[in-house]
Design a binder for these strands. Structure first.
Ligand SMILES: [Mn+2]
Ligand SMILES: [Mn+2]
Ligand SMILES: [Zn+2]
Ligand SMILES: [Zn+2]
Lengths: 139, 139
DNA sequence: TTGGAACCTGGACTTTGTCTAATTGGATTT
DNA sequence: AAATCCAATTAGACAAAGTCCAGGTTCCAA
């Protein structure tokens, strides 16, 4: 997903492009995911979608996130033992993770090079490399 | 933790070295963690410790894992959305993760080089780099 | 022998996420 | 416009992983 000025209509169009019927709830969730560069959990998304009044259910948030994941609109970040975070930036990149505050920051993939990895286990095909640089507030 | 022929006594000694009073349960759990090169979840550890008869409780397994983690005997692997895995190999290394079977394989750190990472966010200090190479059974 | 500290335990509880059966709503047909 | 249909949504029950606590056990030192 790209970070551009997102009107409800442009988001609907983008969903259609990817073969997703743009319902009210799906548009709201997509808007929340795109509204800024962040890495929200399902809970945060639910809360953000329902700031004004409850219009979307927990089940729909989970259903929609799984749908978006499936259609490649969103990426899961497994970084915290307690919850999954969602990343609307689907281009290849990596993350800083502040183990104290839980804050996540993007690392652009351009320039990052990993050398010397051994060959994959027999019969395996690559499905992505995650680099997580864990950090802590300085001494 | 090191992978050596582990008698109950040698494990007890090792725990003492790290300032951990070696109780029956803690020794059993350490033995399970060391018995082979694997990356068990808390559940698997509980099961393994209790193969013969139930001698250790869930609470103790979680308490002990947290204690071991604290004392640097064990490392957490955050790789699966559903459960934490524990790694008795505390030397710096990385992992293959088969997203289908869930199998985890070590990648020796020797030879792996990461270049071009941006500077850490202001005021942050490094707390470790995790590289997870996700794989899938071939086409 | 007794007192205390550390340790262990069952089970209640919390959090995150899944599932299902019932309902809604919007497009399509008539 | 009314009826129809089906995908999407929903409340709430459920499941899995993990935490917490109050009471019980063990062990050691005095
Ligand atoms: Mn958890
Ligand atoms: Mn979960
Ligand atoms: Zn990101
Ligand atoms: Zn490992």
């Amino acid at each position: 997903m790209n970070l551009e000025p997102s009107t409800r209509e442009s988001v609907a169009e983008m969903l259609r492009t990817r073969g997703i019927t743009p319902t009210h709830q799906r548009i709201e969730i997509a808007l929340v995911l795109l509204e800024k560069r962040w890495h929200p959990s399902a809970d945060q998304i639910l809360a953000a979608v329902n700031v004004r009044c409850a219009e979307t259910s927990k089940a729909t948030v989970y259903n929609t996130l799984k749908l978006f994941l499936d259609k490649g609109l969103v990426r899961e970040l497994i970084v915290d033992p307690n919850k999954v975070f969602y990343d609307s930036n689907t281009s290849v990149h990596h993350h800083f993770y502040d183990v104290v505050s839980g804050e996540i920051t993007d690392i652009a993939a351009a320039g990052v090079r990993v050398d010397g990895l051994p060959p994959l286990p027999a019969g395996m095909v690559p499905a992505g490399i995650d680099i997580i640089v864990r950090t802590r507030p300085g001494l």
